[in-house]
Nucleic acid binder design. Structure first.
Lengths: 164, 164
DNA sequence: TTGGAAAGTCAACAAGGCTGACGTAAATTC
DNA sequence: GAATTTACGTCAGCCTTGTTGACTTTCCAA
């Protein structure tokens, strides 16, 4: 057993353990996105649309630039996605009242319906995984993920957590 | 507190908790890929090359079709990546001796060097996250990720685990 | 010897990233 | 009041990485 003078078990820090964690992330992320991907395929949308819908739903009235910093893409990339969502009547874009340069984004009823479908599917998988692993494992899961984020992303994540 | 008659705490299964887990996966995966992405950018390779290199290193001598089933992409997509890696002298492709239709893939010394660089960076982040969260959290992390995989992916994952 | 599996190739296409350049309206600063 | 900055949108073009479809070559096995 790999014990330090301090007494901590360091077996979880071996390269072999780390590699297993890396591969677990790879395979699990595939599962994580599989259900929404399946729903979106063939309806002219993709993962990028899902992400936009998720975070607009999460923070109704958010501005374009706020969404940009959360998603970490260029405005051209986001705009392409946003435009189709607005054209298709899933997202509503409103000029800001206090600052008219800003656009505030909301899901329409139609947008809320799709969001529902997507998040139901994704939550179902997450729920099954949580249930199988148990509450203590879930706490650890969240701890490791949070520690894995870039500081800037952790800030975004925590800001969303508080808001909700 | 949400306690069932059985006594289990079900707070970790609320939609709110599940949503936090979903967002944690999203932000953490960004961090997870950030360092290799940075290394590969500007050297004509991308994430797909990293994945191929990782799994060839992981299972030296693996066949193309085995790699296909691990990566879950089409052979055309994998072939494009593989071709550049072979042309650039990072990967060696050998006709099978027992079955000459198969191609057995190995990293060259040059390929091993890049693999080293990529996995060092990715492991460093993972190690920091593991260290920050502690061994118990790491066990939970792995449990939840494993439960999140599609059964087929879990099979692939476990087969790799045993091998290593 | 022939059918079918494994591998590779070509062509075409789409999603979704990126950069650079440009335009407009509104807010802010000088 | 003029100049600058900010927020957003858009056009054009590029890259990576995924897809389908069609086709060939190789070669094992029934």
């Amino acid at each position: 057993m790999a014990e330090t003078p301090g007494g901590e078990n360091l077996l979880f820090l071996t390269d072999e353990q780390l590699r297993k964690g890396i591969e677990a992330m790879f395979f699990a992320y595939r599962g994580f996105t599989a259900d929404p991907d399946r729903i979106l395929e063939g309806m002219n949308y993709g993962r990028a649309h899902h992400r936009a819908i998720h975070f607009i739903h999460r923070s109704p009235g958010t501005t374009v630039s706020n969404l940009l910093s959360i998603l970490g893409v260029t405005k051209q990339s986001l705009n392409r996605v946003l435009r189709t969502l607005i054209e298709d009547g899933l997202v509503r874009s409103e000029k800001g009242k206090v600052d008219a340069r800003e656009r505030h984004l909301h899901l329409t009823d139609k947008g809320l319906m799709l969001e529902r479908e997507l998040s139901d599917a994704q939550r179902a998988r997450m729920r099954a995984a949580y249930r199988a692993a148990g509450p203590q494992a879930v706490a650890g899961f969240r701890q490791v993920l949070e520690a894995m984020m870039d500081p800037e992303m952790r800030r975004q994540y925590n800001r969303l957590k508080e808001g909700g």
